[in-house]
Structure formats: structure tokens, C-alpha cells
Design a protein around this nucleic acid. Structure first.
Length: 818
DNA sequence: CCGCTACGGGG
DNA sequence: GGGTACGTAGCGG
């Protein structure tokens, strides 16, 4: 008997029969491969009423050759569907799980068939669900053991799921690669590797230099560099390999190199093939048994809304989460260092730092990912890449199985299109911000409003318009839809479990010292619960959802509006001035003697409201903010959107909705927006902000601006000749080609808009061909600087004319003196 | 207004 | 693996 932790899973087909491969580790981190042959693949057919036996016989007679697999047997089973209906389903067992769809295709159109179910569930997921195994949890394994090189293989006789949680020693390896463009080619020049146990701290490269740090290992060439990377994976045997944007960047590029050099793709002690699993725009790099996690995806999908940072660069995210950023280096410096071989130590340090940040982020985030895995039952490879809705769905799929409820099918493309066509329902309430700068702002948050509404009003696809007369009193405001009050819905029941568990954990947390390991692990558990419960509302409207029901989302939104309106009403009665409100938050002001009194008023109001709110619905007081700027987005259908910046008491700035941190804005425009926001919030001086914009415009006019600050970057996403719409970057790329520079797909084109006539595209010149005398001052003033600055200043009543109108502010100033 | 194209992270 | 994100912004016509 072995007590092991499950961290990855896969399956193979041996002699047309599936074998599950569970990747595990023991307390000391030793590797195990558990093979289980016990699960037989299956799917369900719902026969039309009265057709059960006839259909069963027909299926048993299907020709094996036609469906390319054996139908092993057909069982009649009872399962729950809809509100609480018990129906007879046929459970069809087949030999090869990859042929399930073939069998299903054969019978789906038969007259006797009402519907087919659970034919889309991947076999390894099927196994985890049916055996009730949660990844990153413990199992007790009994079986025949075989010693292999680097691991022990167990042919399982019996697997038991354990409830207990234990500390297991995980080996985590972070990596980062550096590349330079060289002679129309991309070249990998460095790979850094840092492990969580301190055993690995390396930079691999293939240029040698004097006085290099001792962590640098010099290889012969690019090919050896990659081979050495793979060798380390085999020697160190990490359970997890972690990068930042490593799916979209490091591995995407490595793939091309591996193909070019014909490097074997069998990696690590398990000799798993390095696979690229298509997942939308980028592929996920997968090595079964060495779980590759791209932290950027997790940050982007799950963490982003809770971060203060507007951008999700490693630098910003690391600064915010672990208080440490990247080493400074610009891309051109990197090229310079590599070509001149001067400063290679600095380059190695830079490369190493990225892996250090990544391992530190991993130490913080992997435990969160593991808790999500335990909760929704998906392996970390998947759970770390899922969006909110996919995580909710995984949780519901498991719960449905455990309730003996049939798992609904995912929509086909056609169905998705229909869902997308549905007119959007009325969303949350937005109180248009009163534009301007405010001091001493009280902020409230209503964040778990939707989950509590769903539970309180029993909102679920099957409880919708149940037909019971007495349930009609539970009708959503402003709609004709109501929800059953007699039978608890599938989603509310399971959402309630999440909320209650989280409540219990939060109570426990108060009793434990904050620095303890137990606290951290419990904190992560409540965080996972929070993520899933908060995402349930959005899940109802997710077009890809199995349990999609727009009316449910609509109802939750309607009740949401109802409750927040109540709070606003109450606030107004108490004399608050409402500055801004959106969905679940409220920003208000009130006169008071001092800060302390303000906070007291805020707290008292919160208590009062909470005593009146039904059930688990609760208003949270986020506190007092020193200063804030509120701006409404013009040209926005359906009202204003979040665009504000707040200055907290500790001096930190929270910026929401100002979006010029993109590379299709020039550096100068980005700088000016940041400066304007900072001056206004920290100094409260609008005039100074305007002055700074003016100074910048003057500098532009005098051609004192560095060309580098005016370059606009855009990527070529296809071969040049495939463009129908010739945008500025396409035109610029063509000019580069005429200049003898070869253009490849994926290249980042930097261009500057120059003086002259014609469209913007006509005047987009590659940055390297442009000098200070050429740039179009007017373009940069009117299409870059002013729009960026006005995003902020418009809300304060400034127009383009006010900024450009020479001397208006100045003359007033000179009139009144300094 | 519409349709097309691009954005993100990474070097 | 029956799913190739995803929601939003700018430009040109």
C-alpha cells in the first residue's frame, strides 16, 4: 500500500483498451506511475418513453466493424434530469473511448432515441469523476510494483480516495528564455532555471566570457542549449515546470527550434512527448508527468480583476504580488550586449531574475491553483488554464455525477450562434459618475451579491417557471420569470455548499495565526470557493455552458438592481451624495468633522443596511479614500463604464479603465496620461496637469522629442500579401521590404507618422528611416497626446481648445500673479 | 454606421 | 478533445 498524491493524469490505448496513467508522488517527492485498467468507457442514451427495451436490443446488435469498437454491454439505469424527473437511460459500454463518438453518431438519429448524453467527456476526466479522485489530493494504492529508471510503476489492484490533506514535497522548476532577432532569424540565447528547493539556479547560454558568474553554464550552440534544458528536466525530475507567458512565447518559439534541429520530443523520466494542445489563439505546451503551468494565463483569467495593476506584465504582477520587479533592460540593450559581447553578466542576471520572480510567483500561486483543482476536480494543467466559466462547469459536472443527475451536453456551434444572437438582457445598474475630482470618498462593495441572490431566490435552469401556482410570488423584478420555491435547484444547492463552506473557513481563519502554513492553505481554499461562487452568475450567460440559461442571468441581474437601488435610496435618505455606483459598488460623500468621524458614519450605515438585507446578502465597507477622479466613457452604449482612479490613504493609486498602456500608443502618449493622473490625484492640481500637457505639445512642435518616444508598434499577424486592409503597419512593413529588410509573419513593426499628404497609412514610415525633422507634429498632438490626456481631463471640463488655446490658463495665472 | 484588424503577455 | 478565447478599441470606407 502506498499513500500518494495525484498531480497529473493521462491515458493510453493498449490493444484497443484504455489504460489510465496516474502520475503521483510520495511524501518525499519520489515519482510513481499508477496504471489502472478498471474503468470501462461509456456514454448514455435517453430512449423515448416505452422504447427502452427495444432500443437496448438494437444497440446490442450494432456491427462492430461499422463503429470500429466493441460494444461490451448495455445497461438500463435510472438517472435524474430536469427539476426532479427520474428517467431510464441506457448506459452503453464500449471498448475504445476514442470511438464513443462513432457509436453515438450511429444511433443518434434513430427514431427510438430522444437524446444522447456524456459522449464528450474526455476519458481521463471521466476517470477522475467516476472514481471521485481530486487532483492534488491523496490516494491509497495497492498493486504490483515495478522499478523503472527514475520512478516506480504500479499496476493498481485497488485505489482508495483519502480525505486527509498532507504536506508533500513538490519540486517546482521555473524557467525563462531570452531571444534576439538575428539575420531574419530568431535565436535563443539564454535559458534560466530556478527551482523552489534551491538546488537549481542556472543560466544556460552558448557564448563564453571572462569573470562570468558561477551559475552560468556555457554550451556549444543553440541546439545543445535546448538539449541541456531537457537533460536538466530528466535529472532534476520536477513535478511542475513553470513559466510566465510560456505557452504563448517560450514554448511557442522552442517548438520551431525543436523542429528545426529535429530534437527528440520525449521528455523527462516518463519519456512523455512534448505536445502542443490547441487552446484558442495559443497552444498549451504539455508534458505529461512534468506539469507545465503558464502563470500568465492564470493571472490573466483568474487574478486580473483582483489586481490593482492595469497591465499584466511579469514586472507589474511580480511587484504587486511579491514586492519585487524585473531587472531593467530594454530589448535594444539585449541585442547590443549579445552582438558586442559586452555586459553578458548583466544579461545573465536579467535572465536569472525572471526565473527567480517566476518561482516566487509559483510559490504563491500554485497553492491557489491546487485548491481550485481540488475543488473542481481538474488536473492543474487544465485548472490553471481555465476561465471562470470553465471552472464553474467542471464543478457542476462533478456535482451532477454525485447527485446521479445526467450531465447536460455542451452546445454545438449552431446552438452557440443562436445563443449569441439573443438580445442582451438588461444588466447591472450604473449610476453615472458625476465627473470630477473628489476628496474623502466612502466606498462600499456588494461583491457576493449575485451568488446570494441565486441561492436566496433559487435561480436555476430547471427551477425556471416550474408551473406551481404558489411559486409565482418568487418572480424576478421587471420580468415575467419566476423560480420554484418547493424544490431546491441544482445550481443553488451546490452554490450554497460553496458559500457555506467558505463562511465556515473564514470563521476558522480568524482563530489561526496569519503566518502559519495552515492559515495560508485555508486562505487559498476560501479563495477557490470565492472564485467559483462569484462566477456562477456569469456562467448562466456563457454561450458555451452546458447549464446555460439566459433567463437565470437576467433574473439575477434584475434582483441585483433591486437590492442596490434600495441601498442607494437609503443612502440618500441619510444625506449621502452619491458620486458613482456600478453593479455592486457605491462611491459616496458626506460632510463630517474629520476622517475618523467619516469612517464611523460609513461603518454605522453599513450595519444598518445589513440588518435590513435578507438572508446572506451583505454589504461590505471598503473604507475611506483620500481623493478620486471620475470620468465617464463617451460613445459607450448602455451608459458609462468604470473609469476612475483612486488615491488610498497609504498613497497608492488605483487606476481603472484608462487604457493607453497598449503598444499601439506611442511612449509619449502613455507617459503623458500617467503624469496627468498622478498630478491630479497626488497634488490635486488640474492646472499643473494641463500645463504638463502643453509643455509636451510645445516640445513636439520644437521637435525636441526623441523619435523613440513616438514609435507606434503593431504586429504583422499574417504574411504581407494576405492583407486586404492595408493599415499603417502593413504599409510600413512594405517599405521595410523595399529597403531590403525581409519581413516575416509575426514581426513587430515600429513606425512613425511623418509630414506630408495622404492617409495615415501613406505616411507610416519604419522607425529606422525617420529622423526628428520628419515626424508629423499635428498627428502626434491630435491623435496621440491630446486623446490620451483628454481621457482624463475631459471629465474635469477641459476641451481640446482649452489645452491648445494658447495662454488661456497662463494668462489668467499671469493676471493674478503666481 | 459597418467591417476589418488588432490588442494582450513574452524578446 | 465533437470547444480553435474574448471582449474591446481604432481605423478606413
Amino acid at each position: 500500500m502506498r499513500k500518494l498524491m495525484v498531480y497529473d493524469i493521462d491515458y493510453d490505448i493498449e490493444n484497443e483498451t484504455p489504460v489510465i496513467k496516474i502520475f503521483c508522488l510520495d511524501k518525499d517527492g519520489n515519482l510513481f506511475l499508477v496504471k489502472d485498467y478498471s474503468l470501462i468507457p461509456y456514454f448514455y442514451v435517453l430512449p423515448k418513453k416505452g422504447m427502452e427495451d427495444r432500443l437496448k436490443e438494437m444497440i446490442e446488435k450494432i456491427d462492430e466493424k461499422k463503429v470500429k469498437t466493441k460494444i461490451l454491454r448495455v445497461e438500463k439505469v435510472e438517472k435524474i434530469i430536469g427539476l426532479n424527473e427520474k428517467r431510464i437511460f441506457l448506459k452503453i459500454f464500449v471498448q475504445n473511448p476514442r470511438k464513443i463518438s462513432k457509436v453515438r453518431d450511429e444511433i443518434k438519429e434513430w427514431e427510438e432515441v430522444e437524446e444522447t448524453y456524456e459522449y464528450t467527456i474526455n476519458f481521463y476526466k471521466r476517470y477522475l469523476i467516476d472514481r471521485k479522485i481530486s487532483p492534488m489530493s491523496l490516494i491509497l494504492v495497492d498493486g504490483e510494483e515495478k522499478e523503472k529508471i527514475g520512478y516506480i510503476e504500479i499496476k493498481a489492484n485497488k485505489i482508495e480516495v483519502l480525505k486527509e490533506i498532507d504536506e508533500f514535497k513538490l519540486r517546482i522548476l521555473a524557467f525563462d528564455t531570452e531571444w534576439v532577432e538575428e539575420k531574419n532569424d530568431e535565436r535563443i540565447i539564454m535559458i534560466s532555471l530556478v527551482s523552489n528547493d534551491g538546488k537549481i539556479k542556472k543560466v544556460l547560454t552558448f557564448k563564453d566570457w571572462k569573470d562570468k558568474p558561477n551559475y552560468v553554464e556555457v554550451l556549444k550552440n543553440e541546439r545543445d542549449l535546448i538539449l541541456r534544458f531537457f537533460e536538466i528536466l530528466k535529472e532534476y525530475k520536477p513535478h511542475f515546470l513553470v513559466g510566465y507567458n510560456s505557452d504563448g512565447f517560450d514554448f511557442a518559439r522552442l517548438k520551431r527550434k525543436i523542429e528545426k534541429y529535429k530534437i527528440r520530443k520525449e521528455v523527462g523520466v516518463f519519456k512523455s512527448e512534448l505536445k502542443f494542445v490547441r487552446r484558442g489563439r495559443v497552444s498549451a505546451a504539455q508534458i505529461k508527468g512534468i506539469v507545465h503551468i503558464d502563470l500568465f494565463i492564470f493571472v490573466n483569467h483568474i487574478l486580473a480583476p483582483t489586481l490593482k495593476s492595469e497591465v499584466l506584465t511579469l514586472d507589474e504582477v511580480a511587484k504587486e504580488l511579491i514586492g519585487e520587479g524585473k531587472k531593467e533592460m530594454e530589448y535594444k540593450d539585449m541585442i547590443e550586449i549579445w552582438s558586442t559581447e559586452k555586459g553578458l553578466t548583466k544579461l545573465a542576471e536579467y535572465n536569472l531574475q525572471d526565473s527567480i520572480l517566476t518561482i516566487k510567483l509559483a510559490n504563491l500561486l500554485l497553492p491557489q491553483i491546487f485548491e481550485i483543482s481540488r475543488l473542481v476536480g481538474e488536473i492543474p494543467f487544465d485548472s490553471s488554464r481555465y476561465t471562470y466559466s470553465q471552472l464553474v462547469e467542471s464543478y457542476l459536472v462533478r456535482r451532477a455525477f454525485e447527485e446521479n443527475r445526467i450531465i447536460l451536453n455542451p452546445p454545438k456551434q449552431e446552438e452557440k450562434e443562436i445563443r449569441m444572437m439573443r438580445l442582451p438582457y438588461k444588466g447591472a445598474i450604473v449610476i453615472e459618475p458625476k465627473e470630477g475630482i473628489y476628496s474623502n470618498i466612502l466606498v462600499w462593495d456588494f461583491r457576493s451579491l449575485y451568488p446570494s441572490i441565486i441561492v436566496t431566490h433559487n435561480i436555476s435552469p430547471e427551477t425556471l417557471n416550474c408551473g406551481h401556482e404558489e411559486c409565482k410570488k418568487n418572480q424576478a423584478p421587471e420580468t415575467k420569470n419566476y423560480f420554484c420555491t418547493k424544490i431546491e435547484g441544482f445550481i443553488p444547492r451546490n452554490l450554497k455548499k460553496l458559500i457555506e463552506l467558505r463562511y465556515q473557513i473564514k470563521k476558522e481563519l480568524k482563530e489561526i495565526p496569519k503566518e502559519s502554513i495552515e492559515y495560508k492553505s485555508l486562505y487559498n481554499r476560501q479563495y477557490a470557493l470565492k472564485i467559483i461562487s462569484n462566477a456562477t452568475y456569469g456562467y448562466f450567460g456563457f454561450v458555451g455552458a452546458r447549464w446555460y440559461k439566459a433567463e437565470c442571468g437576467e433574473a439575477a441581474a434584475a434582483w441585483g438592481r433591486f437590492y442596490i437601488k434600495k441601498v442607494i435610496e437609503e443612502a440618500k435618505k441619510k444625506g449621502f451624495e452619491i458620486i458613482y455606483g456600478d453593479t455592486d459598488s457605491l462611491f459616496a460623500r458626506i460632510e463630517a468633522k474629520n476622517e475618523k468621524e467619516l469612517e464611523e458614519i460609513g461603518r454605522k450605515f453599513t450595519e444598518e443596511i445589513n440588518s435590513k438585507l435578507p438572508g446572506i446578502i451583505e454589504l461590505e465597507f471598503r473604507g475611506l479614500f483620500k481623493r478620486g477622479i471620475f470620468v465617464s466613457k463617451e460613445r459607450e452604449k448602455g451608459g458609462a463604464k468604470k473609469r476612475y482612479a483612486l488615491l488610498a490613504k497609504d498613497g497608492s493609486i488605483e487606476i481603472r479603465g484608462f487604457e493607453t498602456v497598449r503598444r499601439d500608443w506611442c511612449e509619449l502618449a502613455k507617459q503623458i496620461q500617467r503624469k496627468v493622473l498622478e498630478i491630479i490625484l497626488k497634488e490635486g492640481n488640474e492646472k499643473k496637469a494641463v500645463e504638463v500637457v502643453r509643455e509636451t505639445i510645445e516640445k513636439l512642435k520644437k521637435r525636441e522629442v526623441d523619435i523613440d518616444d513616438l514609435v507606434i508598434y503593431e504586429q504583422l499577424t499574417r504574411p504581407l500579401e494576405e492583407y486586404e486592409q492595408i493599415g499603417p503597419h502593413v504599409k510600413a512593413a512594405k517599405r521595410l521590404m523595399e529597403g531590403g529588410i525581409s519581413i516575416v509573419e509575426g514581426m513587430l513593426i515600429g513606425y512613425v507618422i511623418v509630414k506630408g499628404s495622404g492617409s495615415i497609412s501613406d505616411r507610416a514610415i519604419p522607425a529606422q528611416f525617420v529622423s526628428k525633422e520628419d515626424y508629423d507634429t499635428d498627428y502626434y498632438i491630435h491623435h496621440q497626446i491630446l486623446p490620451a490626456a483628454l481621457r482624463v481631463l475631459k471629465g474635469l471640463g477641459y476641451t481640446e481648445g482649452d489645452i491648445l488655446g494658447k495662454g488661456k490658463v497662463k494668462s489668467l495665472e499671469s493676471f493674478f500673479g503666481k
